[in-house]
């Protein structure tokens, strides 16, 4: 059976991509690609366009920046401690003489990777559990009680236990950096899916009573394809909102963990660690906290705008207005 809509179900863009594919093949006169419509609508959203530009800029900055910057983020230089901004050190240096610019770039890699991957994981879990709980009545009770249980768990002690239990085995298995990365992402992912699950469940419950779902059932569409074809595209908006908020939360949670000494080891710079290292010197060297803080804020803000624009662009009812 040909079915263009088989997707993993976690990534909103994938869902829409497959769902938008059909019309190109069908339209009679000069079929416009659906993605062109999406792009046209996205372009009209000034904030989204600027947000996308800033976000891509930051991605490039942290991804390829370190190749062009000669200074090593972990190299100490005791003669250049606590310096202010200069051409040699655009963002100054810290109390061990490490170049903040290099550290912000290196930290951004880890922070953004953790943020994105943890967001995807929590989005996947949240959407999966929300859809299952909303669509299948028998699963609703158990899954929502599980969600309540996770919400009721004190997150920090749970993370503590997770880190203590799995840090060594994971570091041994994947190497220290990847091991901690996997641990961080999983820990953040499995402790932050609950809001998404609740929102998605609520929307699915409402959608399930709509007549087009009944129409799909009267056609004989099996539940799995009702979910991928009719449910997911229609719960896209709340998922997008959760996604944009999720990245911010993930970056901040990672910072908290690093601050508590549970995250990456101290010599691995992340934005959160840079921020918290700088907090104790806030009065003498305020700029040292401003730079990583600025980066986190910019990333979160730009993603929020991009998410907003994408949500509008992907909704055919708003598009073209």
């Amino acid at each position: 059976m040909t079915d263009p809509v088989v997707s993993s179900g976690n990534d909103p863009q994938t869902v829409t991509a497959s769902h938008q594919m059909g019309p190109e093949a069908v339209a009679v006169p000069a079929a416009r690609s659906q993605w062109r419509d999406v792009w046209d609508q996205f372009r009209t959203h000034k904030g989204a366009l600027i947000g996308a530009f800033v976000f891509l800029g930051i991605c490039l900055f942290v991804a390829i920046g370190p190749w062009f910057w000669p200074l090593d983020p972990t190299e100490t230089n005791m003669r250049a401690r606590n310096e202010g901004m200069s051409w040699a050190h655009p963002m100054g240096t810290d109390r061990l003489g490490r170049d903040t610019f290099a550290r912000v770039m290196a930290g951004g890699r880890i922070s953004m990777a953790v943020g994105l991957v943890a967001m995807l994981l929590s989005l996947f879990l949240g959407t999966l559990i929300g859809v299952l709980a909303g669509y299948f009545k028998r699963l609703d009770g158990p899954l929502m009680r599980l969600t309540d249980m996770f919400l009721a768990l004190p997150i920090l002690p749970l993370l503590l236990v997770l880190v203590v239990l799995f840090r060594e085995p994971l570091s041994a298995a994947f190497g220290i950096e990847t091991g901690i990365f996997v641990l961080m992402v999983t820990a953040i992912g499995i402790t932050s899916w609950m809001q998404t699950a609740r929102i998605v469940r609520g929307d699915v419950l409402a959608l399930k009573e709509r007549e087009f779902i009944l129409a799909a059932r009267s056609i004989g569409t099996p539940p799995r394809r009702i979910i991928t074809r009719h449910m997911l595209p229609n719960v896209l908006s709340p998922i997008m909102v959760s996604a944009t908020l999720g990245i911010a939360t993930a970056i901040i949670t990672e910072s908290t963990l690093s601050f508590l000494g549970l995250g990456f080891p101290p010599d691995f710079p992340t934005w959160g660690r840079l921020l918290f290292d700088a907090v104790s010197f806030l009065q003498s060297y305020p700029m040292r906290a401003v730079w990583p803080g600025l980066m986190i804020s910019l990333v979160v803000l730009s993603i929020n705008y991009v998410g907003d624009g994408l949500r509008d662009a992907l909704d055919p009812r708003i598009r073209g207005r």
């Binding site: 059909g22 069908v26 087009f212 129409a215 074809r229 595209p233 229609n234 909704d315």
Partner: peptide, 16 residues
């Protein structure tokens, strides 16, 4: 209400 707002007419009719 009986037409999925996110599907084009062609997709809706060809679902069966």
């Amino acid at each position: 209400a009986s037409l999925n707002p996110r599907m084009t007419v062609a997709r809706i009719i060809s679902e069966p």
